[in-house]
Lab assay of single mutants.
Amino acid sequence: MVQRGSKVRILRPESYWFQDVGTVASVDQSGIKYPVIVRFEKVNYSGINTNNFAEDELVEVEA
């Protein structure tokens, strides 16, 4: 279970941040499909630095 402030590695192959490390900004408990919002240092092609992920697409590298 990841929690706010954890450092996580992204396992979603189609993601711009695949294999990159980001910080968990928040975790939604309402039961949505992609409840974990992760914030990154670098921006993607659209200038965005956050994205939603499912918990099984993340691996915690640092608490």
Rank of each mutant, 00 (worst) to 15 (best):
F40H: 00
F18L: 02
V38C: 07
V2K: 05
G47V: 02
T50V: 13
I48L: 13
G31A: 11
A54N: 09
D20W: 10
V59L: 12
I37K: 15
G5W: 02
P13E: 12
F53V: 00
S6W: 09
E62S: 12
G22S: 02
S46E: 15
S26E: 13
T23W: 09
S26A: 13
T50N: 04
E60M: 14
S15F: 05
S6D: 08
Q29I: 11
V27Q: 02
G22M: 05
T23P: 01
D20Q: 13
T23G: 02
S26T: 07
S26I: 07
N44T: 07
V36N: 00
K7W: 07
V43G: 08
S15N: 02
K7Y: 08
D28N: 08
S46L: 15
N51V: 10
D20T: 09
N44M: 07
E57P: 04
V36R: 01
I48G: 08
A63L: 11
V38T: 00
Q19C: 14
N52G: 09
E55R: 13
E14T: 14
G5K: 03
S46F: 14
E60V: 15
N44F: 07
E14I: 06
Y16Q: 03
S26K: 10
A63H: 12
R4M: 11
K7F: 09
V43T: 12
T50E: 13
K7Q: 08
D20M: 13
F53S: 02
A25N: 06
E55H: 15
V61F: 06
N51H: 13
L58A: 01
N52L: 05
P13H: 08
G47I: 03
V59K: 09
K42T: 14
E41H: 08
L11T: 06
N44V: 06
D56S: 11
A63F: 12
P35G: 09
R39E: 12
P13I: 13
I10A: 01
F18V: 03
E60G: 07
E14N: 12
N44K: 06
S15M: 04
F40M: 00
Y34S: 04
S30C: 08
V61Y: 06
I32K: 09
V27M: 06
R12H: 02
E62Y: 11
R9H: 03
Y45S: 15
V43C: 14
K42W: 08
L11M: 10
A25M: 15
V43W: 11
Y45K: 15
V38R: 01
I37W: 15
S15G: 02
S6F: 05
V36D: 00
G5H: 03
E60N: 09
Q29L: 13
N49G: 05
S6Y: 06
Q3D: 02
F40T: 00
K33F: 06
G31L: 10
T23V: 13
M1N: 12
D56Y: 14
I48T: 10
I37Y: 10
L58T: 02
L11F: 04
V24M: 01
G22C: 06
I32D: 08
V27N: 03
E14H: 11
A63R: 12
A63T: 12
G22W: 08
R4Q: 12
V21F: 07
E62Q: 11
M1E: 06
E62C: 13
M1T: 14
E62H: 12
P13L: 09
Q19P: 02
S6L: 07
L58F: 05
S30M: 06
V27A: 03
L58R: 02
D28C: 12
D20P: 01
L11H: 03
V59Y: 08
E57Y: 04
G47M: 03
V43Y: 15
E41L: 09
L58C: 07
D20L: 12
E60S: 10
K33P: 14
D20S: 10
V38M: 00
A63W: 12
L11Y: 05
G31Q: 11
G47W: 05
G31H: 10
V36C: 05
T23C: 12
A54I: 03
S46I: 10
A25Q: 14
P35H: 08
D20A: 10
V61N: 03
T23R: 03
G31R: 08
V8C: 09
N51L: 07
V2R: 06
G22E: 03
R39C: 14
V61L: 09
T50Y: 14
Q3T: 11
V24P: 01
D28A: 09
R12K: 08
R4C: 12
I37F: 12
G5N: 04
V8D: 05
V59F: 09
V43E: 11
E55M: 15
N52C: 14
D56E: 11
F40V: 00
N49Y: 10
G31K: 09
V8K: 05
N49C: 14
Q29C: 13
E14Q: 10
F53K: 04
F53I: 01
T50F: 14
R4A: 14
R9F: 04
E57K: 02
G22T: 03
I10P: 02
V59W: 08
V36E: 00
A25F: 11
G22V: 05
R12N: 09
A63Y: 11
Q3A: 10
R4I: 15
I10G: 01
A54F: 04
I32A: 12
V43I: 09
R9D: 01
D20I: 10
V61Q: 04
E57C: 06
G47C: 10
Y34M: 07
W17D: 00
V21M: 04
V61C: 08
E41C: 14
S46D: 15
F40E: 01
V43S: 14
N44Y: 06
E41A: 10
W17R: 01
V59C: 13
R39G: 03
G5S: 02
S30V: 04
E62F: 13
S26F: 14
G5Y: 02
E14S: 14
L58N: 03
V59D: 09
I10Q: 01
N52K: 07
N51T: 10
F40L: 00
N52W: 10
T50D: 04
Y45L: 15
V43H: 12
E14P: 01
D56N: 12
I32R: 08
V2P: 09
W17G: 01
A25T: 14
N44P: 07
K42H: 10
D56K: 06
F18K: 00
S26R: 11
N51Q: 15
I48Q: 15
Y16I: 03
Y16G: 00
K33G: 07
D56Q: 07
S30G: 10
N49S: 09
G22N: 03
V24L: 02
P13T: 11
R12D: 06
V38F: 03
E55S: 09
K42Q: 09
N51Y: 12
L58G: 01
V2A: 05
P35M: 11
V36K: 00
F53P: 01
I10M: 03
K33S: 08
G47L: 02
A63V: 12
T23I: 13
